[in-house]
């Protein structure tokens, strides 16, 4: 929700980034304030997922220009784990499996790492168990998730729920959801988006990266951005997403005279 006394959480100016020497992001500008939900849409290869990974600090991507301020700090001064501890959260498009490491152990370590960073008390395994079960109810998750290996043998939907469970535990300032809707059936989509809505508040912000408008039926964005050729070429309200749904992506940017490479 857009509101008056909101603070700037993320300020992206002219961001350029490359992978293996190939420039993918070619000057992204974006300002995200507290309480806001932004949707970034675009076709495959438009640079949306790259943008998400660059913000989180994936080492395969090299930043080649521009700047990103997170709550006023230069984001690129921070290692990936420091960004996470500062409150940047990425819900992965393809969550990683870690066989043999129990989900509860992993979640507790992540949670306690943040708690100690924030100067708060860490939870012992028993306290954590109660705490996490509470959060799991939000996502209608079966408690046996906790004893299984991290994402090990999880279905696509279970993995995505597990991502949002982590978001619920870590309470980030900025949550970037990278195609969280992909691979979800309609019930799972409802549960996951319902979870996200409950986690959104006036102090945090959410960036949804998605192909499709259908997720936006459940999570209402304040802004919709269209990415193309590594830049944001159009910004509008939620009605823009509906336009895209009916007209496709081809017309966007043509009006704005996007670079020839797009």
């Amino acid at each position: 929700m857009i509101h008056q006394d909101s603070k700037t959480i993320l300020e992206v100016s002219g961001l350029r980034a490359a992978v293996d020497g190939v420039e993918i992001l070619k000057g992204v500008d974006l300002i995200v304030k507290s309480g806001e939900v932004h949707a970034i849409m675009g076709t495959n290869g438009s640079g949306k997922s790259t943008f998400a990974k660059v913000l989180a600090g994936h080492s395969a991507y090299q930043v080649t220009g521009g700047s990103v301020l997170f709550e006023g700090r230069n984001l690129f001064d921070l290692e990936p784990e420091e960004r996470a501890r500062a409150g940047v959260f990425l819900a992965f498009q393809y969550p990683i499996e870690i066989p043999g490491v129990s989900n509860s152990h992993f979640l507790r370590l992540a949670y306690n790492t943040l708690q100690s960073q924030r100067g708060k008390d860490e939870l012992d395994p028993l306290e954590f168990e109660d705490f996490v079960r509470e959060k799991m109810r939000l996502l209608e998750m079966n408690p046996n998730f906790l004893d299984r290996g991290v994402n090990e043998g999880f279905s696509g939907g279970e993995k995505k729920r597990n991502e949002i469970l982590q978001m619920a535990l870590l309470e980030p300032r900025l949550a970037i959801l990278d195609e969280t809707d992909s691979g979800l059936d309609i019930d799972a989509l409802r549960i996951v988006t319902n979870g996200v809505n409950k986690l959104a508040n006036k102090d945090n912000a959410i960036i949804l990266v998605t192909h499709y408008q259908r997720m936006l039926n459940y999570i209402e964005p304040d802004y919709v951005h269209v990415m193309r050729g590594g830049r944001i070429v159009k910004t509008g309200g939620k009605e823009l997403a509906l336009d895209l749904e009916t007209r496709g992506y081809d017309w966007v940017g043509v009006e704005r005279r996007a670079p020839a490479s797009a």
Partner: peptide, 8 residues
């Protein structure tokens, strides 16, 4: 990267 993104 997955671990790092969770602060680990």
């Amino acid at each position: 990267f997955y671990f790092a993104q969770r602060g680990i």
